[in-house]
Structure formats: structure tokens, C-alpha cells
Write a protein that binds this DNA or RNA. Sequence first.
RNA 1: CGGGGUGUAGUAUAUCGGUAGUAUCCGUGUUUUGGGAACACGAGGGCCGGGUUCGAUUCCCGGCACCCCGACCA
Length: 419
Amino acid sequence: MKQSQLFTKTKKESPADEVSLNAELLIKAGFINKEMAGVYSFLPLGLLVINKIENIIREEMNNIGGIEMKTTVLQNKEVWEKSNRWDDEVVDIWFKTKLKNGGEVGLSFTNEEAYSNILKQYISSYKDLPIYPYDFKNIFRNETRSKSGILRGREFYWKALYSFSKDEAEHDEFYEKSKLAYKNIFQKVGIGHLTYMTFASGGSFSKFSHEFQTLTGAGEDTIYINENKGIAINKEVYTDEVLESLGLKKEDLIEKRAIEVGNIFSLGTKFSEPFDLKYKNEKGEDKLVVMGSYGLGLTRLMGTIVEVLSDDKGIIWPESVAPFKVHLLALGKDENVKTESDKLYEELNRKGIEVLFDDRIDTSAGEKFADADLIGIPYRVVVSKRSLADGGFEVKKRTEANGKIVSFDDLMKLLETKN
RNA sequence: CGGGGUGUAGUAUAUCGGUAGUAUCCGUGUUUUGGGAACACGAGGGCCGGGUUCGAUUCCCGGCACCCCGACCA
């Protein structure tokens, strides 16, 4: 993409109405636009990042048997009454509205009911199980206080998978697989080293759930981590009994602030009962389906990556989720610079290497450098009179202080290698 | 939901009970081009409603919006 065609512009000043680092950087760099408190649009650059994250998650979910679909945002009141979660006294984060004909609808804040209701039509035999449907969708929660930019919004984008298994054993097997898939996801998006699988409360569903918590001061949770074992305990279940059952000792744990980037739950028959979600086993007996839920907020994950990976100049995207792999800067109005940078741009596109080309004519070198640092694309390639005189193109990683001059061929070789 | 704070050009801010200033951004022109270039000219502003006052952007009341702390958080 040519930067001259990208309508977003970077901002020099930090927004006055945002304090959180993720919102500040993402707004300054032109990834998101604030619509109201806790509600953000994703601009071209932001959408590219979300798409990258989405594809990583999709790949991992498909690997463990997930099958993608799409549930609706508008929710049927009657369906939620079955599980007793329509009442505002029970769930206080509903956005609800009226239909013109007088009926009521809600905007989905989670998907258990929708999936249970749909799957009831298709599950009737043990031969139909297990199944693992999931979707990516926008979710709405009427939070009394949204905060921290895109870390806690009223509208956000998430992935939710639900497991439908014949029994506890089959459920447990998938549950363990999902843990590994989640670990892979966080590893791939570049925050694996800061993300701990954390024992947490299972709420009203089960004794425990597992959260994936990324260490950051911007987080909302306090967890106790065991660095050697790579696991943690949420403060909400930090008791002697739990420590003992997990074989952890207090003296090996360190208290940290963290943000929950994913959460997996065993649901048991909490939803299959009210929805009468049963199947016939081999003996012709009716059995309740055993369920699990596996959530992951993509927008929160994107915000977390920014919180954790940036410096005083801007964002430092891991290559796996960066909007582009290469930021190509053409400096000056020299004809050779134009010719060579155009040529390089075309060649990168031809090879399928994602590139943002700063082809703006009247923009100074300093401004282009500052923009490149702020936007945070992994590789910066400079074409200028000076670089050409020195023998080619200057390439610099966002994480490095100084670049080096390389020839056209060496540059292509470098950028073609998979990391 | 409890507490605290803030609303002034697109953005960031200053001052002020009496013609609202600066930077940036935007437009035009000239000179520039390796770390947010320089000069000139130009365009652009007081959240909404009420009150006090000769006069309110400023003071008072109400509303709305936004931020922060806490509560909450499948």
C-alpha cells in the first residue's frame, strides 16, 4: 500500500482524553478512532492487525478441530430466558432494545445460549459428538465503566469457541488441547514470554477456570506467578487449599499485575440442562451433552501487545501481527530515488511481501522517520540519494538503533526469509 | 454505582467578567529534504440549557460528554 493513498495521518500530540498507553499510541499512529467511551473504530492499519491476529487464532482453533461459523448479534429474549440470563437483575451488562412491533432484543454479550439453542437441532446421537464450533464477532457489554483504551470496551471483537462432548473424559481431553492452542496463540503474537496460564474462579459454572494473563501494569487483575513452572494463580482463588491442590508454595510465587487475554471454562451441563441438549448413547439412553467455553478478545489482545511492546517513539509490532512487514521510505525528490523505490515497491508486491510505501513527495525525512517509528512496522527500508551512493538500500529493524546498507539482491533475500 | 477531575479551532493548549492568544494541522507561494524544515499570507474556536450581570467562554445551577480511583467484570 502506498502511504499517499492511506487517508489516516499520524498525530504529533497525544489525545487529551486518553491516558492509557495502548489508546494513546494506536490513536496517534492512526490504527483506531474513538467513537465514544469504550467504543473504537478500526482504521485501515488497525484492521490489518486484527486480521493478522484473527488468522493466527483461526489456524490454532482449526488445528484442534474447531469449525467456524457466525452467530448473530441480535439475540432472542426467549432463548435467554431458558438459562435465566435475560433478566437485568441477573445480568447487568445487557444492551437491550425494542423491536418496532413491540418485542425485545438484546445485543449479545456472550454466546453460550446462541450455540446451545442452535446445536440442539443438530445433536441427537453420540455419533454427532464431539463438535467444536466457534466464531469471531463483535460483542456488546454495557460496562458501568469502560477503561484503558481497547483493553476494556463496551463493544469489542472476540473469538468464542464452544465444545460439545459426550462426557467428562472427552471434554477433559479437548480442554487440555485448548490450553496448548492458547499457548501457541500467545507465543505466535509475541507475548508468550509474558503470558501465564492462571488458575481462576470458575464462577457459577465450575470450581476453576483457566485464564491466560499477560503481565502488564495496565492490567486489572492481581496474580501470583511461579516463573519456573510458568503458571499462576489469580488472587480471587489464592488460598492455602488451592495452593496445596496445585502443589505450589507461597514462597515461590511473585505478585504481579496482569490483564486477562483469554479464558477457558468447563461448563458441565450448566447449559445443556436448560436447553435440554441431549443425545442417545450406544444403548439408546438419553445423556446430557458436556460443554466448555473458550473465549479470547482480539481487540484486547491487540491493546495488550501495544502495552507490552513499545518504546518512547512508538509501537513495536511483532512481525506476526504487524500491519505490514516492510515500511519503505523514499527520501527526497531525486529522480533516481523515485525510480529505485518504485522498482523495489513493485518487486516486494510481486513477491507477496507486505509493504507500506512512504511515497509522499513533500514530507521531510525527519517526519517519515518519526512516522515509521510510531507506526512500528518491523523492517524499515530507506531509499535516498545517500543510500544509493553508498551502494543500495538502508535496512533497519524497528528493534535496532542503526541500519545497514545492502544491495537490492541482498535486501530481497533478507526480506524473503521467514521468521 | 460511589468518589475525584476536565470540557476553548481538526489536534494540543493559554488567558480572561469587556475585540479569545499560541503551536500543530489545513490552503497558497518561495526556498528546503537523513530524525517531526524556514519564511510570508490565509482559513478555522468557547459542549448544551438556564441564572446572575449593562455585558458570561469566564461566576452560579442543571444536563450531557470524557478521563482517573474504587466497586463490578463468562
